[in-house]
Amino acid sequence: MSVTSPSAPQSTWTKADIKASRKANRKLHRKEYIWAAAFMAAPVIGWLAFLLFPLGFSVYASLTNWNGLGNMTFIGFDNYVLLVQDPYFWKALWNTVFYMIGIPIGLAMSLGLALALARKIPGRTFFRTVYYIPVISSLAAIAILWQWAYNGDFGLVNQFLSIFGIDGPNWLMDSTWSKPALIIMAIWKGLGYSTILYLAAVQSVPRSLYEAAALDGAGAWRRFRTITMPMVRPVTFFLVVTNIIAGSMIFTEINIMTPTGGPEWSTASLVWYIWNKAFRNLQMGYATSMALVLGILVLIVTVIQFRLNKRNEFSIE
């Protein structure tokens, strides 16, 4: 389709001529306008239907007494008042925050692995594949396997610890160790994904920077701290943000490994509690208020991260 622009109006044109020209112009471009609107409409409608409407609906539902089946009754902020007074909400929130401890540990391990895998070592492809397998494996299957591994008597983890003379705990049945157990599993599961991203970032750091630094007498640690770390910061930022969002939604492994919320409710995450409230205890309105609070908390953390990242941004001239 080709579009020819009308010739520029001559100075002898009257107002009527200009008007007629504009009309012709509009007519000529109408089809393009329609197409443009159609293309823009698709994401806008999608955004309205699948994001803004559910979000607005959730906000309203959180202000109602609703069992998820019948009619809603508007109750103002009662759900939020209840939430503040609900010890299980705070416990679930604390558990969820606790799970985040695994994020820096996982990232540090991933970066270490990426640095190792970036070197030309024998069997590099094999190791890369091995570390990535947990990422593509079913979380439900992995959760069941780890449940066995954490067995107090004959589990793989405690057998391994016994080699070093350590008498391991009964991980999933001990309120002190149940959360660390889930964190270890989550780190293991996510290691491959973070490593792959870090590997790409590490490999894209210009060699010339390292060479120049080496010539200036910088040691390995100095090169890592002042070249590698800053150069992979965008990946770190991306991983921290996405891991926090994903971590705040931890559910499946908890529901499989500790279906009643663990010993003394030590593993119950907020999403697990929300799900129970919504679908088992018919408190959809209350559950929605908790989901919103969780959403807002994650939003705040994400905004802070964006700001901190912006402040620390740098560029190499």
Binding site: F50, L51, L52, P54, L55, S58, A140, I245, S248, M249, F251, T252, N255, V271, I274, W275, A278, F279, A287, T288, A291, L292, L294, G295, I296, V298, L299, T302, V303, F306
Partner: peptide, 23 residues
């Protein structure tokens, strides 16, 4: 841009949190 990202994140989270069972 920041606000749009933030709203998107919150929305995605809510949708996920309100989903049936995370499966």
């Amino acid at each position: 841009g920041l606000s749009a990202v933030a709203v998107t994140v919150a929305g995605a989270l809510l949708l996920a949190a309100c989903s049936s069972d995370g499966s």
